[in-house]
Design a protein around this nucleic acid. Structure first.
Lengths: 114, 114
DNA sequence: ATTTTATGTCGTAAACATACGTCATAATTT
DNA sequence: AAATTATGACGTATGTTTACGACATAAAAT
């Protein structure tokens, strides 16, 4: 395994990069956006919204699910997907914290510290 | 080209996913973090900080450069790298905007009007 | 002038990601 | 009971990323 080198890094950097990876394809961003608009919907709705084949969408959904950003609830023959807002907040916090550390000050109120 | 399908998506989603892709490896996050701590340094410093071979680091540096997140200034035999803060702010804004749209309200301060 | 140093370029193997077709299956509908 | 529908699982071709060794080159040090 060549990619095992990822394990050598700080676990916070790993989690942050994993979330970023989940966001690293426009189809996945479009899926998240669509889910936020309709709250919940089935796979078929998503694949008719987005210009990719159904199985490709399914693959992207599986990735978002394994990143923890969405969840699927099975109801008979359908699976209803929705956002996992806790994870989206965690992601936001991780990215904000990272960017705050390296550049964009995340807490512009705290002027009184080295 | 299979990946040409990316072109079918909204350009803002594309830019956002491209930035996220640049952040999708812990080595690249570690490089950005190191650069923020030392302001500027040469390739060799980075590859002794980070547990990967020099050419691998070079590859990651090239990716960060092509994403516009860092720049390298040649001085004799050395190349001094530093962060490009404008790009980091743009990245922050894009991600904040995206996450704000889908979940985490991005402007909790603005209760009235600009 | 020769050696050392810092970096970039090229090649490449292995692993992963992307995109989709086909098949299997289980719940509805007819 | 048979047909339809929605989805997941599997296979696979092509493309991309990751990781690194080997070589090239140009500046600096000796």
């Amino acid at each position: 395994m060549v990619q095992a080198k990822k394990q050598l890094f700080d676990s916070k950097l790993q989690r942050c990069s994993d979330y970023c990876k989940a966001l690293s394809h426009p189809a996945r961003l479009a899926i998240l956006k669509h889910l936020s608009e309709v709250q919940t919907c089935i796979t078929g709705d998503i694949s008719s919204e987005i210009p990719l084949g159904r199985t490709t969408i399914n693959q992207h959904l599986a990735e978002l699910k394994s990143a923890g950003l969405i969840q699927g609830n099975i109801a008979g023959v359908r699976t209803y997907y929705c956002l996992k807002t806790e994870a989206l907040f965690e992601l936001k916090n991780l990215i904000d914290e990272f960017l705050g550390q390296i550049c964009c000050n995340e807490k512009p109120k705290e002027m009184s510290n080295p």
